[in-house]
Amino acid sequence: MSIAARFTDAWTGIDDPLLAAGDLLPVRLARACVQVLGVDGAGLSVMDGPGLRVPVGASDERAAAAERSQFTVGEGPCLHAHATGSTVLATDDVIAQRWPALYEQVVQGAGVRAVASLPLRAGRVGFGALDVYYGDPGDLGRLDLAAAGTVVTSIVRVLTASPGAADDPEGPSWLGSPGARRRGQVWQAMGVLNVRLGLGAPDALALLRAHAYATERDVDGVARDLLHGRLPLADLRLGPRA
């Protein structure tokens, strides 16, 4: 059986009623990646603008936490893969050298020891990335890149063929996944900072990221607390952790 057929069987064969809703399609795809590629975790994300990454599905909580860490520090394999259109392979040593802030959160915090990020492209247009994770850096060399490329092609076909992907102004239902809704609160918090502090979008996001890093949290959680009144504007702080 071909890799494409195995992947289709894997994601369509997930018999979990909790994952049946259309907004959880990317979660099923991420779990199928783990099954077919033999990786420890997988996450799918799309881009909502320059540097504005939206997580739409993860195979497990560790993969979801790794995505939140990349977004919080604003750099990492996924963003580089999307920006360059090329696959990025990074063990923990490479992450420490290229993205030291990410190393603290992903390697030391989430226990991810290696990452492969593959861009999602529809024609010539890149719109996201697939990240696959390993707990052992030695396993990265065993990733079948040809098989991973076939899986990426299948993912793009499934996502772009979903109802609403082409003609619904609100987009397909999978853009309303739980991870995407949480990230949407970051955009709302940026709007609050624009109105209350007069900050443009880049500066508002930078302030949220700085506070998240300073308090050892992720940006999603900081934004949620700001919107719900648990984080006063006066308590947002810039600068490194003490």
Rank of each mutant, 00 (worst) to 15 (best):
Met1Gly: 13
Met1Tyr: 04
Arg6Pro: 02
Thr8Leu: 12
Gly13Asp: 08
Asp16Asn: 15
Ala20Gly: 00
Ala21Glu: 13
Gly22Cys: 05
Gly22Asp: 15
Gly22Trp: 01
Leu24Cys: 03
Pro26Asp: 08
Arg28Glu: 04
Ala32Trp: 02
Cys33His: 07
Val34Leu: 08
Val34Arg: 15
Val36Ser: 04
Leu37Met: 12
Gly38Ser: 07
Val39Arg: 04
Gly41Trp: 02
Ala42Gln: 08
Gly43Trp: 02
Leu44Ala: 01
Ser45Gln: 14
Ser45Val: 14
Val46Trp: 04
Met47Gly: 05
Gly49Glu: 11
Gly51Trp: 03
Gly51Asp: 07
Val56Asn: 07
Val56Trp: 00
Glu61Val: 15
Arg62Cys: 01
Ala64Leu: 09
Glu67Gly: 04
Arg68Met: 09
Thr72Glu: 10
Gly76Tyr: 06
Gly76Phe: 00
His80Asp: 12
His82Cys: 02
Thr87Gln: 10
Val88Trp: 03
Leu89Pro: 04
Leu89Ala: 08
Thr91Ala: 10
Thr91Ile: 04
Ala96His: 12
Arg98His: 10
Trp99His: 12
Ala101Trp: 01
Leu102Val: 10
Glu104Asp: 14
Gln105Glu: 03
Val106Ile: 14
Gln108Trp: 00
Gly109Gln: 08
Val115Ser: 06
Leu118Thr: 15
Leu118Tyr: 10
Leu120Ile: 04
Leu120His: 13
Leu120Asn: 13
Arg124His: 14
Phe127Glu: 07
Ala129Tyr: 03
Val132Arg: 06
Asp136Phe: 01
Gly138Ala: 08
Leu140Asn: 07
Leu145Asp: 10
Thr150Val: 13
Val152Met: 05
Thr153Ser: 13
Ile155Leu: 02
Ala161Pro: 01
Ser162Gln: 13
Gly164Pro: 06
Gly164Lys: 10
Ala166Val: 14
Glu170Val: 03
Ser177Glu: 04
Ser177Val: 11
Ser177His: 09
Pro178Thr: 11
Arg181Pro: 00
Arg182Pro: 00
Arg183Ile: 08
Arg183Gly: 04
Val186Trp: 05
Val186Met: 11
Gln188Lys: 15
Ala189Phe: 06
Met190Phe: 02
Gly191Gln: 11
Val192Gly: 05
Val192Asn: 11
Val192Ile: 14
Leu193Lys: 12
Ala201His: 13
Pro202Glu: 09
Pro202Leu: 08
Arg209Asp: 03
Ala210Val: 02
His211Ala: 00
Ala212Arg: 07
Ala214Gly: 14
Ala214Tyr: 01
Val219Cys: 06
Leu227Asn: 11
His228Tyr: 04
Gly229Leu: 07
Gly229Val: 12
Pro232Phe: 00
Leu236Gly: 03
Gly239Phe: 03
Gly239Ile: 00
Gly239Trp: 01
